Simulated scan of single mutants.
Amino acid sequence: MELQVDEVYDGTPSCVKTARHTIKVFLARLGTEHLARITADTVTGAQLVVSELVTNAVRHTDGTCGMHLAYRDSRGIEITVWDNAYGSLTTREWDPDRPGGFGLEIVRTLCGPLTITPTDHGKQIRVRIPLPQAA
């Protein structure tokens, strides 16, 4: 069974809130339509990941951005955020004294590695959020 959602955003800060709502609704559908085990921690973590990735797209690029959510199997939810900026993401070494810039570190902690792929119109960042195993 498969479930997918695609959204395109105007690149304004309000789209971050919309993206958080979209992942919450997606997970609710996944739980009811596909009988996946969705915990409150899964929803909170997924909303945090989406918020960080879409915020980066809004803050560091101009123009539209978008998000693709996909569930294909029990391995987890694939989240892809795209924007119109070419180039890779800037990662920083861990510095507990740094006042910010921890978004990608948070995403990696929750999801594992990021896949960054150049596209004809910019780049896309893909991560996978694992789902809790059935009891």
Rank of each mutant, 00 (worst) to 15 (best):
M1G: 08
L3Y: 10
Q4W: 03
Q4E: 14
V5Y: 07
V5T: 07
V5F: 07
D6M: 06
D6K: 10
D6N: 15
D6P: 07
E7T: 05
V8S: 08
D10S: 14
G11S: 07
T12V: 08
T12N: 12
P13L: 12
S14V: 13
S14C: 13
C15Y: 13
C15G: 13
V16H: 00
V16R: 00
V16M: 02
K17Y: 00
K17S: 04
A19Q: 14
A19L: 14
H21V: 08
I23W: 12
L27D: 02
L27G: 05
L27Y: 03
A28E: 11
A28P: 00
R29P: 05
R29G: 08
G31A: 10
G31K: 12
T32Y: 11
E33A: 07
E33W: 04
H34A: 04
H34D: 01
L35R: 10
A36R: 15
I38M: 11
A40C: 02
D41I: 05
T42Q: 11
T44H: 01
G45Y: 00
A46E: 02
V49C: 00
E52A: 00
E52P: 06
A57T: 06
V58R: 02
H60A: 02
T61H: 08
T61I: 00
D62S: 10
D62T: 07
G63I: 01
C65W: 01
G66Y: 06
M67G: 06
H68G: 14
A70F: 01
S74L: 05
S74W: 03
G76K: 01
G76Y: 06
I77T: 04
I77N: 03
E78K: 09
T80C: 12
T80D: 02
T80H: 02
D83R: 14
N84I: 00
N84C: 07
A85G: 15
A85Q: 06
Y86V: 13
G87Y: 13
L89Y: 08
T90C: 02
T90K: 05
T91W: 01
R92Y: 10
E93M: 09
E93Y: 03
W94N: 15
D95L: 07
D95W: 05
P99N: 05
F102N: 14
F102W: 04
I106Q: 14
V107Q: 00
T109L: 11
L110S: 08
C111Q: 04
C111R: 02
C111V: 05
G112M: 05
L114I: 09
L114G: 03
I116H: 09
P118G: 01
T119V: 08
T119P: 10
G122P: 10
K123Y: 01
K123T: 13
Q124C: 12
Q124K: 11
I125W: 04
R126G: 07
V127P: 03
R128L: 09
P132H: 04
A134G: 13
A135N: 13
